[in-house]
Design a protein around this nucleic acid. Structure first.
Lengths: 266, 266
DNA sequence: TAGGACATTGATGTATACAAAATAAGGCTG
DNA sequence: CAGCCTTATTTTGTATACATCAATGTCCTA
């Protein structure tokens, strides 16, 4: 019987963190990341049972870490537990996605309000401003290209992450993270879908205005205003959702954001 | 080597559901419930590592279902993952609990608003009204006793559960459930702590008024009002939290709601 | 005596063997 | 020929053995 099966699978999994040292994630973490990728990329069809063994041979590890990953993804809402054991990929109606976005707006609004009431740490505020200045820079050009778009997405996510820090509330920030892990609910989910759209830049300009305004509101301790802005901010995503779904249903071969096939068409 | 260790532990675990048939939950489910109980009852000290083997011998099952339960409770926020593997019982500052309550208010407010905007199913509305009439009945008496209090708690939780159904949004309801699982965040968590207080009945009268008002608002499709009421409603819990913490710090032998020892004293 | 290196112990992470249950298939009977 | 019961196979649930990593304690040396 062969031992030492712990040797890493040939696929390049070793991760190098910011400090440069090689932090090789545990099998469980790898399983979680790769399985999530498998779900979002649509390789696993929604609704049908996921055979553990098929994942085992696909990811090249034992059942134990894979089961752990299944449990976690079920908790995240990406999988649904089946009646007599096992899991299936979840699918979402257009309204469920809209609800998830509304939920994010609600939570970000709460965080913005608390930040305004409690006062945000200057360091975090500056990091947020730095992210916004990057976006300002990008928006100076008449249109965003395939190279500049990833930069926008990155800066946008950094801004939203800092905003979540400002209220200094781990409990709420944690919940927001959960919501953001739902497909389509995260801040820049539908930005991608709209990248090719003609007036996509205008949408980003509006969003960016709200970004600056909410920082201003937090600075001035105008908590009600801060909350209202973030709520309204999420409604841009609502608009993009509708546009993306229509595009998706129309011409099939459009550039998809990860996870479109999880949308349950009526 | 002895096989068939699957035989259930002597502790009475078999559950009979509403239909009357004996649904014996899986080891994993049992592990989750019992471990949660162990955490909330304070048998496991907060902050120190939970040795898996100690749980194994306590619950009389193998490591596998226990590890699954640990993963789930970590996701719930009751446990924290330690740096180099393993878990510890989480502890909460008074502010974290306050944040959790605020979060619940926010989510219940969102659900109430959506219910008002979309219209709630008449059946659910009637069930909610039925729960409120039970509370009305209880409040007719000058004071609540040890027998009537559990009835109040039950009716109160039923009302809140129905309210969560009214918006017909699984995504949001699910998130609210998660929050309610946090210690002290659930609707009737601090009602218990205040049961002996002299003006506890008055507090319940106020809460009950808000209960009826939110149903009225949903009925009239006044979504903004519905949301505002539920937000304010959660602030009764905030008040009770402060009172309970003071009581707890004062005389130690007071009647505790489950999980007081998870409050991190400064 | 103090500090460091090594060894030992005990923990978790991982793999796999085993058992039970559910599903699918096949045969039998009405 | 259809429906049901029985059987076989596949799949998940559970237990346990093994490996690896961290922490602690001891011994040796400067």
């Amino acid at each position: 019987m062969k031992k030492n099966l712990t040797i890493a699978s040939p696929s390049a999994d070793s991760v190098v963190d910011a400090a440069g040292k090689d932090t090789s994630p545990s099998q469980t973490v790898r399983a979680q990341l790769q399985l999530r990728e498998l779900v979002l990329s649509g390789e696993l069809p929604a609704g049908v049972r996921i055979a553990e063994l098929s994942i085992v041979e696909r990811l090249g590890m034992s059942r134990t870490p894979i089961r752990a990953a299944l449990v976690q993804l079920e908790q995240e809402g990406l999988l649904v537990a089946l009646a007599h054991g096992g899991y299936a990929v979840a699918s979402f109606s257009e309204r469920e996605i809209a609800d998830a976005i509304e939920l994010r707006g609600c939570l970000e609004g709460l965080l913005a309000r608390l930040a305004a009431e409690r006062g945000a740490a200057p360091v975090v505020m500056n990091e947020a401003r730095a992210a916004l200045r990057e976006i300002d820079e990008l928006l100076r050009r008449p249109m965003l290209t395939d190279e500049t778009f990833p930069i926008y997405v990155d800066a946008n996510e950094r801004f939203h992450a800092r905003l979540a820090e400002m209220a200094d509330s781990d409990v709420i920030a944690r919940q927001l993270e959960r919501v953001n892990r739902l497909p389509f609910a995260s801040p820049s989910a539908f930005v991608i879908a709209q990248s090719s759209s003609a007036d996509s830049r205008d949408m980003l300009v509006v969003a960016q205005s709200q970004h600056w305004q909410v920082l201003d509101a937090i600075d001035r301790r105008e908590s009600g205003r801060a909350e209202a802005i973030m709520r309204e901010h999420s409604r841009i995503a609502q608009r993009n959702l509708r546009a993306a779904v229509n595009d998706h249903h129309g011409h099939a071969a459009l550039e998809h954001p990860p996870g479109v096939q999880l949308i349950r068409r009526r």
